[in-house]
Amino acid sequence: MSLAVVTLKKGEGRLLKSGGMWIFDNEIASVMGSFVNGDIVLVHDFDGYPLGRGFINTNSKIVVRLLSRDENTMIDEEFFEKRVWDAWEYRKKVTDTSSCRVIFGEADFIPGFVVDKFSDVLVVQSLALGIDRYKEMLVELLKKVLAEDGIQIRGVYERSDVKVRKQEGMEPYKGFIGEEFSTLVEIVENGVKYQVDVKDGQKTGFFLDQKYNRLAIQKLCKNARVLDCFTHTGSFALNAGYAGAKEVTGVDASQLAVDQATANAALNGLSDTVKFICEDVFDLLPALEEKGEKYDVVILDPPAFTKSRSSIKNAVKGYREINLRAMKLVKDGGFLATCSCSHFMDYELFTQTIGQAAKNVHKRLRQVEYRTQAPDHPILWSADESYYLKFYIFQVCSDR
């Protein structure tokens, strides 16, 4: 069967030609041949030059997601097994694989497909129509590749309960792939134990991308009084407690998250030193300032305040506000760990926003280090969307 051919307009496809994997609707001159959304198509430049093959979906603004730059490559089981094998081999070299992101979509050249491994459980997100067709095959390939290293996967759960699927013409979905199993999974990261709820936790159940950033704050927290804002299931707070902090307060607006964090503190024998409260951080920080509270370390790990370019202005206000408030709560010479997980809040804008906050409250910042996401969430230089996490540690000094 001959494949449909997508031809680009003259002068378009700049992202694709610089190593990217996406072709947008406004870049396409024509689609010749019959196809069903989700099918593999060939991609040609305006002059007929072959650019590769990928899957098409005219429901999406990203009409084609490239799979191979070789027009003659067969997109079959052997093709995907090589991609899965490459992704796993990379993780073995760069990270602790007991729990890690095994596949990170475009950054692993498997567009729209994300898999996290929590001990012996896999959690899958299928975000594009084309890759959804290969979902079960990819899961079986992952099990096969992991089994070669003696890792037996006891269960797979799908967490494709995300709005982005609607842009692909698919409904959000969650459920078991294969046999049902207990969806509470105990993992150990940086010496800290967690109960991960892969069925009802946020995203895939746990944020693996901050693994080494959590480790980085441990050395600052010995004998410290610590405030961890937007704590989720308590990961930064527990790393502080594990490192020997004398008192840790974790804050989150979700009672479910606070309950999970409290259970995780008990799991680690840290209930006496690590406490959690259910509060809105934007309300709590000014209240703590009014009381005259001071901390040796303040940690800010907020959710993405913006998921589009259109709301960036409000996001900047939010990031400036929490950083400004947090700096006021840090003892002179204490430390602030602050981050943004929004792709649209880029490095330059995030850095500038923190600088403005420091200026507004007359604080001097000494940068300890700048970090990004853990290497199991690789940043592909030709795929800007793969670089999203910015993480700073500063020493906060009074401006005098």
Rank of each mutant, 00 (worst) to 15 (best):
V251S: 07
A266D: 11
V258K: 00
F207C: 01
D252G: 03
L220N: 05
K222S: 11
K219H: 14
A240V: 06
N268I: 00
A265M: 12
L208T: 04
I217M: 13
A237P: 09
G250T: 13
L215K: 10
R214Q: 06
R214V: 09
L256K: 12
A245T: 10
K211Q: 12
N264C: 12
R225V: 15
N213I: 13
N223S: 14
S254N: 06
H232P: 06
G269K: 03
V258E: 06
K222L: 11
Q260T: 05
V226Q: 01
T231Q: 07
T262K: 11
R214A: 12
F236C: 00
A265H: 01
A224W: 06
A257C: 14
A253D: 15
Q255V: 12
A216L: 08
A263P: 06
Q218D: 00
V248T: 02
Q210M: 14
T231K: 11
D209P: 02
A263F: 01
Y212H: 04
D259F: 10
K246M: 14
F207S: 00
L227F: 03
I217G: 00
Q255F: 09
S235E: 11
Q210T: 12
V248I: 10
A224S: 15
L238S: 07
T262V: 12
G241N: 12
A266T: 15
D228P: 06
T231I: 05
S235C: 06
V226M: 06
T231Y: 08
S254A: 08
D228I: 10
V226I: 09
V226P: 02
F230N: 07
A243I: 15
T262P: 08
A266M: 10
G250V: 15
G269V: 04
L220F: 15
D228L: 07
N268M: 00
F230H: 12
R225W: 13
F236V: 05
Y242R: 03
N213M: 04
K222P: 09
D209Y: 13
K211R: 14
F230L: 02
C229W: 01
G241R: 08
I217P: 04
V226S: 05
F236Q: 02
H232V: 02
A265K: 06
C221H: 05
L215W: 07
K219V: 14
N213L: 01
F236D: 08
T262D: 12
K222N: 11
F230G: 02
E247H: 10
A224M: 03
A224N: 01
G244L: 11
G250L: 15
G244M: 06
V248S: 00
N239G: 08
N223Q: 01
V248K: 00
G244H: 14
F230S: 00
G241D: 04
N239M: 02
Y212D: 10
T231R: 07
F236S: 03
K222A: 06
A263Y: 05
N264F: 02
D209T: 09
K222C: 11
A257I: 07
